[in-house]
């Protein structure tokens, strides 16, 4: 039996296509097994389109008490989702986000898995747009300017390096901590809160990455990542 946990933010993927919605849900769930990702796509007769009543039902079903982030693909999916949210008993429990639907779903699912609240899960989805690892000019305040960053070099002992599952594990490991964690590989940096950015580093097995952490829980973050790496990311 699993220990009783805080409810996690649910996800609803609204697409014109049932296959597309299901595929995105499958991809997101792989990296966030405890998050309820509801796929809703197509019309009741199996055609392409969006069905208002199905979207309303999915919103209810995905809400386990922590709210729901809603992502959509094209035009009418957005409008149908908007109407469904507006007609919900408590629209504030639903965050409709304008984000790339695949990347946004994966980022939101991982954030939710890490225990993030509705607003932060929504922000993770929105932040997933154009999420290449930070190159020459970091968008966020450069961590080396912050006093006393903790820095440690970590060897990726597993075969695949920071690929999807290890990257998700790493992001999940630090998600609940009060720390800003940056992972540097060669000339690229990634925010450890972002699975996609971590994957974007392309750091293969056998290589080393630098982990730089600041904030109250910086030491704990580094400790957990070291432990994770020693276990070979459970691969």
């Amino acid at each position: 039996m699993r220990p009783v946990e805080e409810p996690k933010v649910g996800l609803v993927i609204v697409s014109h296509s049932e296959m597309l919605a299901s595929g995105i849900a499958e991809l997101a769930t792989q990296m966030a097994p405890q998050v309820d990702v509801e796929a809703v796509g197509g019309t009741p007769d199996g055609g392409l389109g969006t069905d208002y009543d199905s979207v309303c039902a999915a919103l209810v079903s995905a809400d386990s008490g922590a709210g729901v982030v809603v992502l959509y693909d094209l035009g009418s999916a957005k409008m149908t989702a908007e109407m469904a949210v507006e007609s919900a008993d408590d629209p504030a429990r639903f965050a409709l986000v304008d984000a790339p639907v695949v990347e946004g779903a994966v980022a939101a699912a991982v954030a939710s898995q890490g225990g993030a609240h509705l607003r932060d899960v929504a922000a993770a989805a929105v932040g997933a747009s154009g999420e290449a690892p930070v190159q020459a000019a970091p968008a966020r305040p450069a961590l080396h300017l912050v006093t006393d960053p903790l820095s440690v070099e970590i060897e990726l002992t597993n075969d695949v390096g920071l690929h999807a599952r290890p990257a998700a594990l790493l992001a999940r490991t630090v998600a609940e901590l009060d720390a800003d964690v940056l992972v540097r590989y060669r000339d690229s940096e990634a925010n450890a809160a972002s699975v996609l950015a971590l994957m974007g580093l392309g750091a293969p097995g056998g290589e080393s990455v630098e982990v730089i952490a600041t904030g109250k829980d910086a030491r704990e973050a580094v400790r957990r990542i070291e432990e994770l790496a020693e276990r070979g990311f459970d691969d």
Partner: peptide, 13 residues
């Protein structure tokens, strides 16, 4: 809203 399926549903709705 319930039956149209395309953008016309939410818009005309």
């Amino acid at each position: 809203i319930s039956t149209v399926g395309g953008a016309a549903g939410p818009l005309y709705g």
